[in-house]
Amino acid sequence: MALSRADVEKVSLLARLQLGPAELDRLTGELGRIVDFVEQLSELETREIAPLAHALDVANVFADDVVKPSLPRDEALANAPKRDDECYRVPAVLGE
């Protein structure tokens, strides 16, 4: 499955990355080679194989429903690049 420049451009929006024309060209080539390399997996017959998403076979891990202290607001907001006394701030989200 060849990866086109248009594919890469579409993915860059999905991934929320702004890529310049030169970067798009370079990535189209690089990603194309990696994707071609990964294609070797299709050699394997895996119809009957169950996927393995977790390396550790654990199930049913729960925590009790007990409230614990939250962060003080100043500490919660301390890393925000833009904030006021109460909230994080972003460009208007109307109509997004």
Partner: peptide, 23 residues
């Protein structure tokens, strides 16, 4: 009050991990 009931997990801070509430 806004942002007074948050912690690293629900702010999604790097490194924080979720654990499912049994209830």
């Amino acid at each position: 009050e806004p942002n007074t009931q948050t912690c690293p997990v629900c702010i999604g801070l790097p490194g924080a991990l979720p654990v499912m509430n049994r209830e």
